[in-house]
Design a protein around this nucleic acid. Structure first.
Ligand SMILES: [Zn+2]
Length: 429
DNA sequence: CGCGTTTGACCTGCGC
DNA sequence: GCGCAGGTCAAACGCG
């Protein structure tokens, strides 16, 4: 029996490798012939192994059954492979399209419109073709109460950038806006919601930018690829959960700080607020995503003069609070280069809810997203004074340093973000 | 012993 | 000026 099992495994592996070599438009006959050969060889091996002539017919029957099962399996895998390939191609195409658009946007970036909405959608059936598709996309995500279970596999990542007056807004926004959005997204993705929303508050030029990330995280802090040293803890009045203060210790004198606090409404949600920008290279995984996120967050800018370009929930809850608002909404699967191991999961034919978790729990994903935030801060801070090309921003992030603190201990990420503004700024130590 | 965390004290900004 | 709340400091403590 063990022999048969191993044979099956080898067989499947062989088919998998064969499948990769086969072209998309291969017909079923080829696969059939291939499978026949496999079956024959397997039967022959079975004879040799068993060595009992009386078992041959029985063995043949069993092999035939296994063969039919395997053939079905192979066809299924073939279809899956085909779909995956199409999606990858589509994704790559979208990626390059976005890059081209980004270049155009960069040129027009001098006309500062404080309110920008961005949407990147990895849906293979949708490419960003001007505002109309974006609006459609946004409306899809904006009408949260739909809460379809079928959206379960769809990941959402949204980044909100805000330029604000920087006064005591953070608490009000935390108290009012955050719970709304959080609850709303929880409705949308009841079980495995894996949306990431980060907000980015850029205050006046002499103030540090802050980014808040809400993440469903079981551990005390997110492993974001940087090393942090805790320097304080407070219990805020608005939230009974203690707020922890961390400083980046990757490089001495790095001004980046982060605050970590659990959401009052949902204790499983971790609110991480980053402040400042790193003065050192980021870990490789973080760098890649940082560059990607930074670049993509600059794509497909939507003019705020078009009110339809802003999703209902955003307009309702955000515009009333701050007129200067940059909202980045990037539903996953992200149109990322294939270099990233955590590619879109909804493409998989198997209805694995675990795929979503797999992506969002991937430490590389978490590292990358978290690291992308300070990158965004850095970029936006600079853009506030003088727009710089993305290449410049990302290159500053590149570096060979590989510091990864902690282990992949966190689980699902469900993120939602809100804006925070900042209070006082101290000169860096 | 070095490093990181804990925790109470202290500082600062803001509203009244 | 006073009180409050957020943020930071630094001594004490724990761990490897
Ligand atoms: Zn740093």
């Amino acid at each position: 029996m063990e022999i048969d099992l191993s044979l099956k495994i080898e067989k499947e592996e062989a088919k998998d490798s064969k499948m990769q070599e086969l072209d998309d438009n291969q017909n079923g006959k080829e696969a059939l012939d291939f499978a026949d050969k496999e079956d024959a060889s397997m039967a022959a091996i079975g004879e040799v192994e068993d060595g009992a002539p009386s078992d041959i017919s029985l063995q043949d029957n069993r092999n035939t059954q296994e063969f039919s099962v395997l053939r079905k399996e192979m066809n299924r895998v073939k279809e899956e492979n085909k779909v995956l390939r199409e999606v990858v191609e589509k994704t790559m195409q979208d990626y390059y399209d976005l890059q081209m658009k980004f270049a155009v946007v960069q040129q027009n970036n001098h006309q500062e419109d404080p309110r920008i909405f961005l949407s990147l959608h990895g849906d293979e059936h949708q490419t960003i073709q001007g505002n109309s598709s974006i609006v459609k996309n946004l409306q899809k995500h904006g009408s949260f109460p739909l809460g379809d279970e079928e959206d379960e596999e769809e990941l959402g990542l949204s980044l909100r950038l805000k330029t604000g007056s920087g006064q005591r807004e953070s608490e009000e926004e935390e108290n009012h806006e955050t719970p709304n959005l959080a609850s709303v997204q929880n409705k949308l993705h009841p079980s495995q919601l894996s949306a990431i929303t980060a907000s980015h508050a850029v205050s006046s030029p002499n103030r540090k930018a802050r980014v808040s990330i809400r993440a469903r995280c079981q551990t005390a802090t997110m492993n974001d690829g940087c090393q942090w040293r805790k320097y304080g803890q407070k219990i805020a009045k608005a939230n009974p959960c203690p707020r922890a203060y961390y400083r980046c210790t990757v490089a001495p004198g790095c001004p980046v700080r982060k605050q970590v606090q659990r959401c009052q409404e949902d204790m499983s949600i971790l609110i991480t607020t980053y402040e400042g920008s790193h003065n050192h290279p980021l870990p490789v995984g973080a760098t890649a995503m940082a560059a990607t996120a930074s670049a993509e967050s600059s794509f497909t800018l939507l003019d705020s003069s078009n009110p339809d370009g802003i999703p209902s929930f955003s307009r309702a809850s955000l515009l009333h609070q701050n007129p200067h608002f940059i909202n980045y909404h990037m539903p996953l699967p992200l149109p990322l280069p294939t270099a990233f191991p955590w590619m879109p999961s909804k493409l998989s034919a198997s209805n694995n809810g675990g795929n979503v978790t797999a992506i969002t729990s991937d430490p590389k994903f978490r590292v990358a997203v978290a690291a992308a935030i300070p990158s965004l801060i850095n970029k936006e801070t600079h853009a506030a004074t003088q727009p710089i090309p993305i290449a410049s921003s990302s290159s500053s992030m590149s570096g060979g340093r590989e510091i990864e603190s902690g282990s992949p201990k966190t689980n699902n990420w469900v993120l939602q973000s809100y804006t925070a503004s900042h209070k006082h700024i101290q000169p860096s130590p």
